[in-house]
Design a protein around this nucleic acid. Sequence first.
RNA 1: GGGCUCGUAGCUCAGUGGAAGAGUGCCUCCUUCGCGAGGAGGAAGCCACGGGUUCAAAUCCCGUCGAGUCCA
Length: 926
Amino acid sequence: MNDEEYNIEYFKEKELIRKKCENCGTYYWTRDNDRKTCGDAPCDIYSFIGEPIFKERSVEQIRESFLSFFESHGHKRLKRYPVVARWRDDIYLNIASISNFQPFVTAGKVPPPANPLVISQPCIRLEDLESIGKTGRHLTAFEMMGHHAFNKRGEEREETGERSGETGEIYWKNDTVRYCDEYLRQLGVDMDGVTYKEAPWVGGGNAGPCLEVITSGLELATLVFMDLKLSPQGQIHIKGERYDKMDTYIVDTGYGLERFVWASKGSPTVYDAIFPDMIKELLNAAGIVHPLETHHELIMQNARLSGAMSRREIAKRVCISPEALKNILGPIESVYAVSDHTKCLAFMLADGIVPSNAKEGYLARLVLRRAFRMLKSLDIAIPLEELVLKQIKTLKNSFPELEESVDRIVEIIALEKSRYDETLLKGGRIVKQLAKQSKLKAQKIHLDKLIDLYDTHGLPPEFVSEVVSTQGVAVDIPENFYSLVASMHGEEQKRVLEPLLDGLNEKTESIPATLKLYYDEPSAFEFDAVVLDSFDDFVILDKTLFFPEGGGQPADTGFLTLEGENRTLKVQDVQEVEGVILHKIENGGGISKGSVVSGHVDAERRIAHTRHHSATHIVVCAARKVLGSHVWQAGAQKGEKRARIDVTHFKRISDAERREIELLANRMVMEDNEIRARFEDRKEAEQKYTFGIYQGGVPPGKAIRIVRIGEDEDVQACAGTHCAKTGEVGPIKILRTERIQDGIVRIEYSAGEAAVLAVQAQEELIKVAAATLKVPPEKLPHTVERFFEEWKQLKKENERLRDDMAMLQIGLLKDHAKDVSGVRVIAEVLPDADTKDMMKIASQLTEDGFLTLLISERGKRASVVSSVPRHLKAEISASELVKRVCEVLGGSGGGKAEIAQGGGEKVEMVEEAMVAGIKLIQDLQK
RNA sequence: GGGCUCGUAGCUCAGUGGAAGAGUGCCUCCUUCGCGAGGAGGAAGCCACGGGUUCAAAUCCCGUCGAGUCCA
């Protein structure tokens, strides 16, 4: 990146000079002529520990000072966004204040909610989960304070200055640095100690120059000047990728709220600065003393060095063994981590994440289980939910919304705890079993086994080691265990997405957006239009009634008739590309531009889709009422006969809940409320109806279509077709619910005529079943149970009778015994016996000293059983005997030397088979 | 979204193609003043479901349903 990028006017004006760090070689700007290093860790140590940089302030004070500083400089203050990034499909969690505005605002497709703006955004990052508590500075949940300005290149003032801030430049590098300088000065930071380090920034497909703002070894803020985007033909090379200038250029700043508080307190760790009460309570409960009191100097020294060097190096420096240092720090590190995790969970769960084994739910479970583990290692009996509630109590002044869902949070955490206990209980048994085997073989537990236990059963190696050591078996856990597991999974991800309409953008670019008649005339099915273009199998019209696939609603079908040509074209599929609607025609082609066509939409299909779409909104709304506000749509599919939605929920839907949802949904239908759909301004809609409107996904564009039921009973951003009133949906029948994965349940239902048909079909099933048993339907459950019981009884009785018969037959068969080369042999054909019967007979006879060869013929198949007394099995193997006999029968067999079975299909060869068997016995006895 | 594992007696689980097993709990009897404990016997299985391969499937293959777990 060009050095010129950092040649900022303000630096010159204030006489900052550019220097090169003697340690790491990066360039930085400073007011201090004598400075030699960049000021960042590891080049400098944390010199603020014990010596705060400015007057002590609380989290609330820093947040307010930042927001009001920028407010007084023309920035609009925004409320926080959720920590779950519902408006994005590339990330699960909100990782930075700029995430709120990606991808549409940053790409210039949607205007920002305000410009410039300032926000303090709670963010969650789990990349460093393992180091939380250990480094003294990492947090999973933190607030990123940011001021943003969205600038546009060029002179295009499309809205003729209606909003002056919407085009052109708001401010760029110079003002950004000035604001930062002034804000730090206002806090009372010694400006001579501040360095601005040049550090090109790359992330999420964007890049740009960046300044890291550092003092006393601590990076307080990052000033990013985002003006590049990933581009295959780009001219600018950064870190092996190619980038190009964007049409927009954006000021993206991130001030670490917690770091400012830490710097103002000079405490050993950031946790001590922001969670003092929680830490006190945890230490109390664990019955331990903060090492700051017992090892004051050591802790302070460790804290100062912790940014600059590894644990091992620190131990050497302070003249103590690494093990001793670890013993002193271990417990407090767990306390720190729990303090952090409880806050993280408060935000995650309050913002509606349902713990599960996939997507963002898995991330919540990860944090939950780490917290459970550490509470256990600290021997703290306070339930985790209580600690999370305590966090919410301290956070509620700033974030009152966290308090709204405490009941659900408590239920979820308790449920997760019992599931985790269950997993460990099961795991303990598996590991003990394994330990027993290893002990027998006098082996250690193999690494493969360790990975398998973690991967398939969720048992961390530490847990395995703990259990196994009680059995006297050793385990070696490699340092890089978790990265080994991760790299194992890394190879799997080869996913190729082949977009159906790839490459069509270029062809549709020059064509004006199609007029969407289906919105204005929802109940019309015939229209006239003009062909604008036609290529491959696609036809583009100036306007259309054909609904394109989207939002889980399938495309309309029907046909187009070419005027004057008497030719009909079957419309198979309809797709939308950037506002242009493409009709896929069966055997398309040869349609000239400018032709006039009349279109006919398959009305029955469309009406069914429309009903199911409106029904979907109603069912989700009902589900939210019954199950809770955390219910979030995770996928949907509408069809002609049925539709389904997947929603997040932390347990199975019970039968009672299912009936309740169905009842509420049908009540909404009977209330016959209006369903209104209209385009609204995106940012106004977001503010008016919250992000809940994005249940079905996030549509692009400045204006989004909002569908409202009744008095805003349900509001969704939705591009689908809808009934005008809920009554038109008709009856809604939930067909079934299913848990498609942990944390997500699927509801399948039919609406309108399809619902009636579905009920009739179910009724029919019951009728047929009842008719077979000759009982009225209401007696079915009782009768079926009785039949099943009777069937089991009869089966047992049958078994007993067969035993008896076998015993009887044994007596008869003994009389038929013949002597073959000195062996008492019973070789018989038993017409109706099955293999099991013959086994019983054979084994009993063998106990009495007979060699048996029994053959039965049942239907098209002959079965053979043979048994050999123990003293003969060395000479004659039953298995060999059966094989020989079955060969004649055209089949095969096998078993043990004492008793074997087999069969074949040549029933007519039974006599020959018997002869062959006896001959073999004679031969073997010679 | 992708991967892995598991569904066998009320419970916990063995069982890698050849007769459905163990421990524990349950029932009956014996021993004991009674409890605990011990001894003898017994009941209890659609081996999750549906297909396929095979002379033969709890076991192998495919699908469905259910449970668990790891990764992005």
